[in-house]
Design a protein around this nucleic acid. Structure first.
Lengths: 144, 144
DNA sequence: ATTTGTGCAAATCGTTTGCATCTGA
DNA sequence: TCAGATGCAAACGATTTGCACAAAT
């Protein structure tokens, strides 16, 4: 995936529409536009607010409510991952593979750490009747 | 610390007042009362809302705003740790040692994992000029 | 007395929802 | 056509703030 060649604009739109359709969602104007913004580059970390602004700047008319709906729909469809690093602000990550994050507390920036890098061992067994859903690692960093 | 004997009520109040004073905070009625509730047992995970209710039930008159203020002051003073597991709900942990958590997504319950249990290795170096503040691991679990 | 904390209610922030309208298949 | 999506504004829950009052040193 990381060695994939740059996609042409046209091709990108096509794969974008296909992506939305494949997720079982109707490829509406705004979903395609948002998917276009989200999946243009390899890895993106966005908040609803930020994506809404970005869409506005790109000349796409979408309401903030629709941005929220779309982000959640994409997440449910497995196109996005939600990253929890801050109470009171939801981040969405276009990298859906297993990986971890640096979190710059100062400005709220997220930086990917490739999935094979960090290893977490000796995770204890969860209580009876429970199963591990996923293990999240957040490396909080600050100015040295 | 875990082998410490049960404290008597009186003794507990004294250590509680001392704790607040030692943190550089004026030992006011409500701070002492909240500290009393928080540090009575070894490990507690509370939300502001929950602590507020608990205080009310214990007959302590405190406003929710003051609970928020106090929790943040205690956190800044190093008496509490803030645990981020959910956008939109802040948890405070009386266990300030290095340790990790199970998070039961279904009901928002937090369960401590002792600090020596999990080991995280190969954390990459942070970007130039940045230093690791802390590494948080959250093991999200659900009904099997 | 002076400084610091408190309570309340209103303000704010991020997010969700209800409902009338629009749109893609 | 018509289920499904959108926009808007209002509702919402968690958290914060402003300011008059109260309590600690």
């Amino acid at each position: 995936m990381s060695a994939m060649r740059k996609k042409s604009g046209k091709e990108h739109m096509e794969t974008t529409g296909a992506k939305v359709r494949a997720a079982g969602l109707r490829p509406t104007r705004q979903r395609i536009a948002l998917a276009g913004l989200l999946f243009r580059n390899e890895d993106r970390h966005v908040t609803a607010e930020a994506l809404h602004e970005e869409a506005a700047k790109a000349g796409v008319r979408v309401s903030l409510a629709t941005v929220y709906n779309t982000l959640h729909q994409f997440t449910q469809a497995g196109l996005l991952n939600e990253v929890v690093v801050d109470s009171g602000c939801a981040y969405f990550d276009t990298n859906i593979g297993e990986h971890q994050h640096f979190y710059v507390e100062e400005n709220g920036e997220l930086i990917d750490i490739p999935g094979e890098t960090i290893s977490v061992s000796n995770v204890p067994a969860p209580p009876k009747g429970m199963a591990v859903d996923r293990v999240d690692v957040v490396v909080r960093i600050k100015r040295a």
